[in-house]
Computed example of a mutant assay.
Amino acid sequence: MSPLADDPARFVEDALEGFVDLYRDQVRLVPGGVVRAVPAPRSQVAVVVGGGSGHYPAFCGVVGPGLAHGAVVGNVFTSPSTADAVSVGAAAAGDAGVLMITGNYAGDVMNFTLARDELRRRGVDAHFLVVTDDVASAPADEVDKRRGIAGDLVVFKAAGAAAAEGASLDEVVAAAEHANARTRTLGVAFDGCTLPGADAPLFTVPDGVFGLGVGIHGEPGIGEVPACTASELAGLLVDRLLQERPEGAGPRVAVLLNGLGRTKYEELFVLWRAVRARLDAAGLEVVQPDVGELVTSLDMAGCSLTLVWLDEDLERWWTAPAQTPAYRKGALPAASDAAGAGDAGRDAAVDDAWPTAPSVDDAGPRV
Rank of each mutant, 00 (worst) to 15 (best):
D134V: 11
G151K: 00
A92H: 08
G123A: 09
A138R: 04
N111M: 06
A85E: 07
K145L: 14
D95Q: 11
A91Q: 09
V135F: 08
A90N: 10
D152L: 15
V130W: 11
A138V: 10
N111C: 09
S137M: 03
A91C: 14
R122V: 07
E142V: 14
A85R: 01
A126P: 05
A106L: 03
G151N: 04
A126N: 08
A140F: 09
A92R: 05
R116H: 03
G103N: 10
D133E: 11
D117H: 01
A138E: 05
R116C: 08
G123R: 01
D133M: 08
G151V: 12
D152K: 06
V131S: 05
T132G: 07
D108C: 02
A150Q: 02
G97I: 01
A115N: 05
T132I: 08
A90W: 01
D108A: 05
L119A: 12
L119Y: 09
K145I: 03
R121P: 06
N111G: 03
A90H: 10
V86K: 07
R120N: 13
A96V: 04
L129Y: 11
G103F: 14
L119K: 07
H127R: 15
N111K: 00
V88S: 10
R121V: 12
T132V: 12
A96N: 07
R120S: 13
D141P: 10
T102L: 08
A138L: 07
P139Y: 10
A96I: 06
S87W: 05
A106R: 00
